[in-house]
Amino acid sequence: MTIRRHHDMGGLDAGPVDRSEHDYAMWEKRVDAIVKVLSTPDRKLLSTDELRRGIEELGPGVYDELSYYERWISSATNLLLEKGVITVDELGKKMAEVEARWIKDRETAE
């Protein structure tokens, strides 16, 4: 068997390189910062290779559907759950809280 994993794309056919660029959004920078902070030598809660492995394991559909930092935060979050740093329940509650707060803020801003 000569399995080629989905992320391992060197040499595959693809269209022209789209050279348009976007400035990184604050939330993307925050993902980057979270990963860097969690992987400092004194914490070692994440390693680059764990993050990469987690991204590879998102599977072909999700890998292509998500943007770069969406893949990062998905992988980092799964790793924090696996390692017991956070629980599913904590994450669910916190996400609901954040979402409710943002919706309220948007309404207030309008």
Binding site: A25, W27, R30, S74, I86, L91, E97, V98
Partner: peptide, 27 residues
């Protein structure tokens, strides 16, 4: 800055949630 990113996505919410959780846990 996140609010400026409307409409916000699940992963933006997840990012904010993780940031807040790791701070609350003293990590």
């Amino acid at each position: 800055p996140d609010i400026e990113d409307f409409p916000f996505t699940d992963r933006m919410v997840m990012t904010q949630a993780i940031a807040e959780l790791i701070v609350e846990k003293g990590i």
